[in-house]
Each structure stands twice: as structure tokens, then as C-alpha cells.
């Protein structure tokens, strides 16, 4: 997640397999648009409540990272350009 904090930009969509409640804090801190959890993982504990309080959409997909990213890319969503 330190990579997300370092590289994500406001409005980014975050595809991750981490389901720890910290995803909400990290996503809100960086003003991300939403989070997609892959491989059918369900958020743990009170992650959903925290996400609702922060107004952060969380989606769950049975697809692995490679495929969900591939399909999103096909819809015109590109990766974050390298800033060095």
C-alpha cells in the first residue's frame, strides 16, 4: 500500500487483493475514486462501514488482477504515468 500512497493520484481506481480495513484509510487519504477487490475476496471486519462513512465505493470481482485490469484498460482506463 505504500506504493499506492506514493503513486496513486486523485480519482484513480485501485485494483487490489488486500481486504484489510486500511484500504479505506489509504484510498480516502489519496482521494481515490473507488476500490476493486479481486479473486472474489470480501472486505473484512468493519471495512464496509468505514467505506460507507467515507463515501468510498468498493466492488468485488471473482476475476484475477490481470483480467479485471485488462478489461478496464479496454474501456479506456489507463495506468498512472510514471513520475520518476
Amino acid at each position: 500500500m505504500s506504493d499506492v500512497i506514493a503513486h496513486a493520484r486523485e480519482g484513480s481506481l485501485w485494483v487490489t487483493l488486500q481486504i484489510h480495513q486500511n484500504i479505506v484509510a489509504v484510498a480516502s487519504m489519496n482521494d481515490l475514486a473507488g476500490v476493486i477487490l479481486v479473486n472474489g475476496r470480501e472486505p473484512e471486519g468493519d471495512t464496509i462501514e468505514k467505506a460507507e462513512a467515507e463515501g468510498l465505493p468498493i466492488m468485488v470481482t471473482p476475476l484475477p488482477t490481470f483480467e479485471v485490469v485488462g478489461r478496464l484498460y479496454g474501456l479506456g482506463i489507463s495506468g498512472i504515468p510514471r513520475t520518476g
Binding site: 476475476l63 490481470f66 483480467e67 485490469v69 479496454g74
Partner: peptide
């Protein structure tokens, strides 16, 4: 980055495990 890498390969026809 990961997103761009997966996206480009997928767009070029590489499929995922499922």
C-alpha cells in the same frame, strides 16, 4: 506500473488464468 502492464498485454490478446 502494474495496471498499465496488465492492460497492454491484455489488449494485445494475452488472457488471464480464469
Amino acid at each position: 506500473p502494474m495496471f498499465e502492464s496488465c492492460g497492454r498485454l491484455y489488449k494485445n490478446g494475452l488472457r488471464g488464468v480464469s
